[in-house]
Amino acid sequence: MAEYIDAKKMVLAMLAGARAIENNKRLWGASYCYDVFGVCGDPQEISYYEAAKTLREAAEKAIGDDTRPQGGEGQDG
């Protein structure tokens, strides 16, 4: 029988991945390349920053609200 991932655990993993990418200065300006040699078609490329934004947006849509802090840590001003 197939095992299913708990939706809450998946959302937490997506948010954790996004935060890890955003906080890792080594990944700023770096890109992830899939199928570099074009074996499965054209090579695909995405910046890690764009991937983090996409992960965060997908997680927020999955839980139906905005999970960003509403003041305090991580906010400017």
Rank of each mutant, 00 (worst) to 15 (best):
Y34P: 00
P69G: 07
T54N: 10
E3A: 08
G29W: 12
V36L: 14
S31D: 14
E73R: 15
A7P: 04
K61P: 00
M10W: 11
K61M: 06
Y49D: 11
T67G: 00
D76E: 09
L27P: 03
D66N: 11
K53Q: 09
M10C: 06
G38R: 13
G74I: 01
G74W: 01
Y49R: 15
T67C: 08
V36R: 15
P69Y: 05
Y48C: 07
R19H: 10
R19G: 05
D76T: 01
S47C: 05
Y4K: 15
E45G: 03
M14G: 02
K61D: 13
R19A: 02
T54L: 09
G74A: 02
V11F: 03
A13L: 13
E60Y: 03
L15N: 09
V11K: 11
A18T: 01
G17P: 09
D65K: 07
D6W: 06
A7S: 01
L12C: 06
K8I: 02
G17W: 03
E3Q: 14
N24R: 08
C33F: 06
W28R: 15
G29L: 06
A7I: 10
N24E: 06
L15H: 03
A13K: 12
E50Y: 01
Y32S: 09
I63K: 10
Y4S: 12
L12I: 06
E73Y: 04
M1W: 08
Q75K: 06
A2G: 04
P43C: 13
N23F: 00
A59N: 02
V39Q: 13
I5V: 15
D66Q: 00
F37D: 05
I46D: 13
R68S: 14
C40W: 14
C40R: 15
Q44E: 02
M10T: 03
F37Q: 08
T67V: 11
A13W: 08
A59I: 07
G41C: 10
Y48H: 13
A16D: 11
M10F: 05
I5D: 06
L12Y: 09
M10S: 06
P69K: 05
A62I: 08
P43W: 08
A59C: 07
E22F: 05
P69L: 04
Y48L: 14
L12F: 05
A52P: 06
R26T: 08
K9R: 13
G41A: 05
P69E: 11
I5C: 02
R68D: 14
Y32I: 04
L55W: 07
C40V: 07
W28P: 01
A62P: 04
Q75M: 03
A16Q: 10
W28E: 12
G72A: 03
T54E: 12
G72Y: 03
A30C: 11
Y4W: 08
Y32T: 05
A2W: 02
D76P: 00
K8L: 07
L27Y: 02
G64Y: 04
K53E: 12
A52C: 04
E3S: 09
V11T: 10
G29N: 09
I46L: 14
K8A: 03
G71P: 01
Y4T: 15
T67I: 11
G77L: 05
E60Q: 15
V39P: 02
A7W: 01
A58L: 13
L27E: 00
G41H: 11
E45D: 07
E22M: 10
V36D: 13
V36E: 14
E50M: 07
M14R: 14
Y32H: 14
V36K: 15
M10R: 14
